[in-house]
Nucleic acid binder design. Structure first.
Lengths: 224, 224
DNA sequence: GCGATGCTTCGACCGCGGTCGAAGCATCGC
DNA sequence: GCGATGCTTCGACCGCGGTCGAAGCATCGC
């Protein structure tokens, strides 16, 4: 019998298969409609609607109404981080697949984490950005250096430093157990990767698949 | 309908009030018997036993039998990290208490996180250890410098560098949203704090309360 | 305005999982 | 060996919460 934050309530929200599927789908970063989420979860529309209102009550989702469509998205990067942590444990204790399939390999290499890139490529990128002093570690937080600011600006990546959301944030990568880059800069880089068609989002998956040309570009820009 | 790690299973294990209480109690770092956990959870012994076997099946706990006692503990620091992440979200979305009580203040200052110190004091300590170059940031991991090794050795803190568990690991602090020190070094420092009676564990709580003298010692050793 | 589309609310059903008392099993002390 | 202690297993009970069809509500296009 203890007081304190109601962790059972939050965990039980994630602990239903239909809701877990919805949240996993939303980890892709794009907000989805109730119908799309019903499809993802494999339940009827009324059932999905009931789940969504529970997730809203629990503070895990945000809602944007656009005409007769209602777009649901994850409430915050903190919620996304919690889900990544749960995925990490599920991966660790779950039945080990004997040989990871090609799709797992793609996921491990590069995938979307909420609104930024995750996976081995993303971890390597953050390492190089530190090496080149475009980003600085400061008190366990990450800061954009002045050379970094001009570097990203030259690449056409403009950062709104005044936004309430931090520019740079470390986010733990469950597959590698190291950090990759989140924050507005992390999001802007993923935007550029997709916009410039260096890579495409795998359908119905968080995997991000680079084209040979796009991969070369990415490596030249961020890993060289 | 998706495959992949069974996150609903893991989350639902945490999503029962009785089990959440048990896991929260085990975040204190000491393994507890089935009877103690039944008391913590506020359920009968048969009920507790059933919960514990589910948590074991789910891979969240480890079990050490000692005679007729059975000691349950968290399976890994990764599991502890997941629970911290869930606590963080529960804190963020939960009803804000108007004014945090004295006990919350103590928790915020210093508390046990699995087997090491967390809270503002722990975050400040890690900062200073970096400042004094006793610890080094290396590729987003933390490494003990040679001066650090002799420093801790002089304090009577011996580190087994050959253990499978990393010596230094960053662990996210939910109250401050910054990192504190985990790993064998983090655990050894907490051991010293308790062994030298600089602080005592608050009964039935994760809070760590420093004595005036102990606090001065701690600050001299780690914050000066 | 009126049918179509997207979603929520209502109501009824049902089964999974939490609950505990009683019984059973293992280890303890002496 | 035999009662005491610590825990698990068994069995029966029960209610919370997930499920969907039908109905209702809001916004759309034209």
């Amino acid at each position: 019998m203890r007081e304190g934050p109601d962790i059972a309530r939050i965990a039980s929200l994630v602990g239903d298969p239909a809701r877990a599927n919805m949240l996993t789908a939303l980890m892709g970063g794009t907000a989805l409609t109730a119908s799309e989420l019903a499809l993802e979860a494999g339940v009827s529309l009324p059932t999905a609607s009931s789940h969504l209102s529970k997730l809203m009550d629990g503070g895990l989702l945000t809602l944007v109404s656009q005409g007769r469509h209602r777009y649901y998205g994850l409430a915050s990067a903190q919620v996304a981080g919690m889900i990544e942590a749960i995925i990490g444990v599920a991966e660790a204790v779950g039945p080990k697949r004997v040989r990871p399939g090609p799709r797992d390999t793609a996921m491990r290499m590069a995938r979307v984490c909420y609104d930024h890139l995750a996976g081995e490529q993303a971890v390597a990128m953050l390492d190089r950005l530190f090496d080149k002093k475009l980003l600085l570690r400061d008190d366990n937080q990450i800061r954009l250096s002045s050379s970094g600011a001009s570097h990203f600006s030259a690449l056409g990546i403009e950062i709104d430093a005044n936004a309430r959301r931090p520019v740079c944030r470390a986010c733990l990568d469950w597959s590698v157990r190291r950090s990759h880059l989140a924050g507005t800069l992390g999001a802007a880089i993923l935007d550029k990767i997709i916009a410039d068609k260096w890579a495409r989002r795998e359908k119905d998956s968080r995997a991000v698949v680079f084209s040979p040309k796009g991969k070369a570009e990415f490596e030249r820009m961020f890993l060289a």
